[in-house]
Design a protein around this nucleic acid. Structure first.
Length: 260
DNA sequence: AGGTATGTTAATTG
DNA sequence: GCAATTAACATACC
């Protein structure tokens, strides 16, 4: 379920388990998840070194390996991390990093939409991918500029990683619900105070989701996410939620509370 | 069996 | 160039 809150949790997990331990092996169980790097080059880049620090930008997790060398993880729709010393790899482990002492970090990715990459630096990677500022790092002014100038639907805008990075399908629905804005409304139609509110709600939703361990069902009952299902009802007014594809993704909203 | 799925990218169309 | 839509990717789940 990797949107920004999920990847933030993975980053914390990575920091708690996998920093400053000598990497003694890198096993690529499925090379499809590698992008722009061979299994051999990944192994040579990592073995004998240790992950020194981490950084998150949007849905990407970076781990520093050496000067001008970072490993970059993206989790697709179903990726996650696992740590321990199991007797054998899990069925969906795609890359396994073995540390001195026997512990292993597994990059798990059942549907293999995620990718493992190398980059010279965080900035170089962000530039090459044309990623916008991270959704939790962007300033109110910069956010308002980016959303307020777009003629695209708010939903598309929030999910566009080159606008702001980190928001996906689920949390964009929640943010728009909190701001009482219809998903198909274009950004450039928003007033200044609506943009302010959208910015505040974006931060509120993402920060709360991180506190709830990125479990959408664990969001408060007054939020959209626990009710976001066919036949679900708006927690505010009990109107049946509407469901339609916007920006290519299934979108849920309350037609009464999010009228404009 | 068929529809759906939390992401990204390319191709197509307007 | 921008915006919207669709397909593709690979697999699991209901």
């Amino acid at each position: 379920m990797p949107e920004l809150p999920d990847v933030e949790c993975y980053q914390r997990f990575f920091r708690e388990t996998s920093l400053r331990r000598e990497i003694v092996g890198v096993e690529v169980l499925n090379r499809r998840v590698l992008e722009g790097v061979s299994a051999q080059r990944l192994r040579r880049a990592l073995v004998g070194r240790a992950f020194g620090s981490t950084h998150r930008h949007g849905k990407y997790l970076f781990a520093e390996v050496a000067d001008s060398l970072w490993m970059v993880l993206h989790f697709g729709m179903t990726g996650s991390l696992d740590f321990g010393r199991p007797p054998s790899p899990g069925p969906y482990d795609r890359v396994v990093f073995a540390f001195e002492g026997g512990d292993r970090l597994a990059y798990v990715c059942p549907r293999m939409f995620g990718r493992v990459m190398l980059a010279e630096s965080v900035e170089e990677f962000i530039g090459a991918r044309s990623l916008g500022p991270d959704a939790l790092a962007v300033s109110r002014e910069e956010f308002a500029r980016r959303i307020g100038r777009s003629k695209a639907a708010l939903k598309a805008c929030l999910m566009n990683q080159s606008c702001t990075a980190g928001i996906g399908n689920l949390y964009s629905d929640e943010i728009l619900f909190q701001s009482r804005l219809a998903p198909s409304r274009p950004g450039h139609r928003l007033t200044g105070s609506q943009l302010d509110r959208l910015y505040r709600d974006m931060r509120k939703v993402l920060l709360l989701a991180i506190r709830r361990e990125a479990d959408p069902r664990a969001m408060p009952p007054s939020y959209l996410l626990p009710h976001r299902a066919p036949n679900g009802r708006c927690p505010t007014c009990q109107t049946e939620l509407r469901r339609r594809s916007v920006a290519g993704r299934t979108t849920y909203w309350c037609p009464k509370c999010q009228r404009i």
